[in-house]
Design a protein around this nucleic acid. Structure first.
Length: 150
DNA sequence: GCCAACGTTGGC
DNA sequence: GCCAACGTTGGC
């Protein structure tokens, strides 16, 4: 099983929103590397750290799981959507997503600034690739952060 | 709101 | 294929 970190801006879609909808198509990812992780490497039941960016504070807000295999992101075909992509076609979709299932809200968000101070997390990809919104997480990093949020 | 980091686009 | 210009992300 793989472990992931996925970001959302809580003003747009927070972990509380995910709790309410239970399962959500993770639409709007428009970065090729992030797409490739979802399309090629994610499996149902993989574990996810849900990260809030542009938040107060930014940090890991809770846990989720992968709830589907990858499939085309419908918003790429929707002219009215912010995520519309004129170069995408039904025959050859450019953007893919997975469904994400709520599992837990942390009692408090673990702030990025606090994660940076934890010696066992120094090699987390999050710190070097701060703009990658879907990224793999080492199992030991996942376990440590999940424990912090319990 | 500022700005650094960095991913993408497009001319050549 | 290189790289400058540009746009976006995201912390603060």
């Amino acid at each position: 099983m793989k472990h992931w970190l996925m970001k959302s801006e809580p003003d747009a879609f927070s972990i509380t929103d995910l709790q309410r909808t239970t399962t959500e198509p993770w639409s709007g990812v428009r970065n090729y590397q992030a797409r490739n992780f979802m399309r090629d490497d994610m499996r149902v039941d993989d574990k996810i750290l849900l990260y809030h960016s542009n938040a107060n504070p930014s940090g890991v807000a809770g846990l989720a799981t992968v709830a589907s295999a990858a499939y085309p992101d419908a918003t790429q075909f929707d002219v009215g959507s912010d995520y519309f992509d004129p170069k995408a076609t039904l025959q050859s979709p450019r953007w893919f997503l997975v469904d994400v299932r709520f599992s837990k809200i942390f009692p408090r968000t673990i702030p990025l600034a606090e994660l940076r101070l934890i010696p066992d997390l120094v090699d987390m990809l999050l710190f070097q690739r701060s703009r990658l919104s879907v990224q793999p997480v080492e199992p030991r990093h996942y376990r440590l952060i999940a424990a912090l949020g319990s």
